[in-house]
Every structure is written in structure tokens, then in C-alpha cells.
Nucleic acid binder design. Structure first.
Lengths: 141, 141
DNA sequence: ATAAATAGGACCAAATTGATCCTAAAGGTT
DNA sequence: AACCTTTAGGATCAATTTGGTCCTATTTAT
């Protein structure tokens, strides 16, 4: 349960690479894919999603590529993960739209809501800047 | 990300039904499946997994069926979910065995670990007894 | 013009999920 | 012993999701 997919992993690796590049440098998707060991065409899709959300800027044509869309300290891990994996939702019933038939009587819902909130809180508390630092923090959390 | 599968949902519904049955009453899988609106053969597999872990007792033959393996207050939501979905692991890298190649340098690991611990803590804090209560608590958490 | 790059859609293989079915084994009943 | 009821467990299968490729636009610098 709760496993991050490869897409999510790749997304994180890719954007961390960008954050580690010299500020303002335009990076090619081929370059990023190479450095992070991710299939290039697959990573391209991921960066398309990033671009749509403004997490990265994309430039087409000769000399084109990607840069971070915001300072890395302003991009949260949650945004990156949700960009490619969709919203963090431990149980489909939590979805706003068409509720499940068990909605009214379901005592499990509040638990999933709590899980969701906790996870969101943690992932919102970590920025790409945090992750891009070369040195590990003194004591792993 | 993090969606519970149907198997997990069914598992929870099934064991809550058992917990709501008169104590000691042997329930047929057909009965449980019927009441919880779950395909019977599928639910049977789920209860097999429960039985292996001692979450339920199974009795074969005429008059056979299932009872709770422990008082419902001693069965946690985490146990039920993990029984059918496997351990709660937000990132494969967290697995003890064969670590990923990015292990040493990966700054994301501690975050996933924290997520895992938080979720486990929440699910460990909820018992089937809690969920089996007919009345909702005053304020949904 | 042309070459270099991303955008986006179509497509496809592998893995996982969500089941079903069949036979075996165990335990009552007659 | 024969028989019925019930779970155990393996095999199988369809649908969905995941992981990935490929091809054709479109944009932009030279």
C-alpha cells in the first residue's frame, strides 16, 4: 500500500537535478534523463506536466529546454508528487464528487481523512531546495 | 497516490461485519459477502489471509465459518489493511532488503520514512472495535 | 530554410488488480 | 461408510494501471 510509482520517483529525481543545476541554466530533457537514469521520452511527459503547472518553464526550439519555474524553496515535494500522481487520496471515498454509497455510515472515512492530512502536511513541509542540498542533514529524521 | 484498493476496502468491511455480529457467532462467508456487498469468492481469499494471521478463526465443514480471532479492540486497522495489501511502504527504497542504488545519496528517504511512521501510527491507533460502533463519534475528526 | 528542441496524441507491453472456477480437505449428519 | 456443507488453495482470466515508445506537430534560433 501507498507505494510511490516510478513516475513519482522519476519526477522527484528530475526536478532535484534541475534545482542542482546552476540557477537560470536551461537544461535539456536528454541531459536530465541521462543524469537521473530515466527513459528520456517518459521523463519528457513528466516535465510536460510540470510545465503546465508552472513548476518548470519550458523553452522550445534551438537552445530550448527547462528551468525551474520558481525558486526551489518555493516548490514543495507535495506539488511534485501530485503533479504526476494526482492528489493524495488514501481512499476513493474521500473524493469530493460522487460519494460512495457507504458514505453516511462509514466510520473509516475520518481515519483516511486524517491520514491524508498528515501526509499532505509532511510533504508540504519539504521543498525541493531541502532535497537538492548535497549534504545530508546531521541526523536523518 | 496512496489509494486503498478494493481488496483493502472489502477487508475492512468484512471484518467490521464480523465484529458487529453477536460475539462468538460463526458467520458464513456467503453471509458476510452478502451483507457487505462483496463478491463471495473474492472475500473468501481475504478471509483466508485473515485466518493465516490469526485475525479470524476459521472452521470447516457443516456449521463452519468464521469468528473474530481476538477481541475487536485488539485488532488494529493497520493489521487488517496490511493483511491484504502488504506492509505500508510509501517508497520501495524503504524496503530493508535490496536497497536502491540511490540509497546513500537519497535525501528523500527520510521523508518517506516519516510518512510511513505517521500513517502506521494513525492506523495502529484505530481498532476494529472503534470502527464497529454503530454511532458516529460527536465530531468527525 | 533548416536544425533543434518541446508538445501532444496514439500506441503498446508488462504488471497489477479484481475477480472466477475447480479440486482438495475437513468436519458434521445420517 | 456415504454424503453434505463449508473453508483452503491453486489455476486461470479479464480489465485496469503502469511504464514506456513512437510519430507528428509546433516553436524558435541560426
Amino acid at each position: 500500500m501507498m507505494e510511490l510509482t516510478r513516475k513519482g520517483e522519476y519526477a522527484i529525481r528530475g526536478i532535484i537535478f534541475l534545482a542542482r543545476s546552476p540557477k537560470g541554466k536551461i537544461a535539456l530533457i536528454s541531459e536530465i534523463a541521462d543524469a537521473t537514469d530515466v527513459p528520456q521520452t517518459f521523463l519528457a511527459k513528466i516535465f510536460q506536466a510540470f510545465a503546465k503547472l508552472g513548476l518548470v518553464n519550458s523553452y522550445r526550439g534551438t537552445g530550448g529546454g527547462f528551468t525551474l519555474g520558481r525558486p526551489p524553496g518555493m516548490i514543495t515535494l507535495r506539488e511534485v508528487v501530485e503533479a504526476v500522481e494526482g492528489p493524495i487520496m488514501p481512499n476513493r471515498c474521500l473524493m469530493g464528487g460522487r460519494g460512495c454509497e457507504h458514505d453516511r455510515k462509514c466510520l473509516v472515512h475520518p481515519v483516511w481523512r486524517q491520514v491524508q492530512e498528515e501526509v499532505v502536511k509532511i510533504l508540504d513541509g519539504v521543498t525541493i531546495e531541502d532535497l537538492a542540498r548535497q549534504e545530508k542533514p546531521p541526523e536523518p529524521v
